[in-house]
Amino acid sequence: MNKFLQRWTVFAGLVVVWQVAGMLAEDPFFPPPSDILTAAWEWWVLEPENVTGHILPSIGRLLSGWAIAAVIGISLGLLLGRSDRAMEYAGPLLVFMRSIPPPALVPVFLLLFRGGTSMQLATIVFGVIWPVLLNTVDGARSVDVTKVDTSAVFRIPRHQWILGVVLPAASPKIFAGLRVSLSLSLVLMVISELVGTDNGIGSQLMVAQREFDYTRMWAGIVLLGVLGYGLNTVLLAVERRALAWQPRSRDEQHA
């Protein structure tokens, strides 16, 4: 409880400082939090069609792009990670692909998918698949020799080997990759919406900027922060449940 207070006091303090400074300075670029909140209220609560028309589609694209990347990344990663040969062929290519700034491919995707949702999904998937894929490869490789031997001796079927041994052994690394990918998904969602669409949080940010409505622009930025915080918190909770089997601390574990 003490820690909770500590955490949020400083946060609240900063907001208050911002509020006072913002009111005193009257700088149009840095409106006080109360104005931002009012703008958000008018924008999203009084006009709920902005939520259904912009925020929800954005979240939908973000989550589906991330989910597609997760499915492809994990399955491919498990296969590549258990074959040194395959990794030798694919490794350098993967390292190169990961280094490509995904927005640079937006023009290509725009033409290939003729704009719209599929182009945005392609951008998100291409941008966020690498952390999942490379972490899964890393995790799948980390299955220790004794577990490999144990599985071989008991001649377990292939699906049990992959789903029952490699996947759980790799899961801590996979979750780490999923978290990185989720925050990247947010970035790419915004990027993909800044071009080639007229709905979504990103496009609304652009509109606000073009109309010199800085208060709304700030509201959009805060919304993205809240969204990122919320998504990360949910994923952490899921991770904690899924990885509950991990030995939590050293003194709980008998060596």
């Binding site: 220790d144 089997w245 991990q246």
Partner: peptide, 17 residues
């Protein structure tokens, strides 16, 4: 079939089961 008991029990057992 045969079974093996390895020296390294910590690694031979699956912590997620």
């Amino acid at each position: 079939h045969l079974a093996v008991v390895f020296q390294d029990y910590q690694r031979s057992l699956f912590p997620w089961l």
